[in-house]
């Protein structure tokens, strides 16, 4: 049995240590907002937060994150500035990569509330969107930064 802390909830799952966190979230906890796309940490669709840091759940064996604070797209509040900005700017097309993208952005702006263009590119070049929403993602980040500024410090 492995104990996990996901979105503030405690879970016990009967899986081997070497199963990737992604599959535990999706198959066992039915948290299917976190997506599989490449399985090798290249595309970012599976991004979650581990202790507030954006990580690739497809390459992290679940045994390594026992008891760590894991947050998935479902655990990011519905009124989170990035989610709000994403709706306002109509960022998603097919939307499949976007939960991962949103988690990547949420981690970025919680560490750097006013990221400059280079900081944005260096973090966001880690994700792939096949629909080509990159320009809307950029706009979404600007809007999220403004929302954070307006709402105060939380992000």
């Amino acid at each position: 049995m492995i104990s996990l802390n996901v979105n503030g909830k405690k879970y016990k799952v009967d899986v081997p240590d070497d199963v990737m966190l992604l599959w535990v979230l999706r198959d066992h906890l039915k948290l299917t907002g976190t997506k599989y796309s490449c399985g090798i940490g290249e595309c970012g669709s599976c991004t979650v937060h581990i202790n507030g840091k954006a990580e690739r759940s497809c390459t992290i064996p679940v045994g390594q994150v026992k008891g760590e604070k894991i947050t998935t797209i479902e655990g990011l509040p519905d009124n989170h500035p990035v989610k709000k900005a994403w709706i306002q700017e109509q960022v998603p097309q097919c939307g499949y990569c976007q939960p991962g993208v949103i988690m990547q952005v949420a981690a970025l702006i919680s560490q750097k509330p006013t990221p400059d263009a280079d900081q944005i590119i260096s973090k966001m070049d880690d994700v792939i969107c096949r629909c080509g929403t990159y320009l809307h993602i950029k706009k979404g980040i600007q809007t999220a930064v403004q929302i954070v500024r307006k709402e105060g410090k939380r992000a």
Binding site: R26, T32, E74, W86, I87, Q90, Y96
Partner: peptide, 27 residues
């Protein structure tokens, strides 16, 4: 007009093919 599919996609609640869950589902 805002697209009707955007909010559930942003919330991570949109169900894609890979997200289908059923009782006794095998993989």
């Amino acid at each position: 007009m805002p697209r009707v599919d955007v909010p559930e996609k942003v919330m991570g609640k949109a169900v894609y093919g890979l997200d289908v869950t059923l009782k006794d589902l095998h993989y």
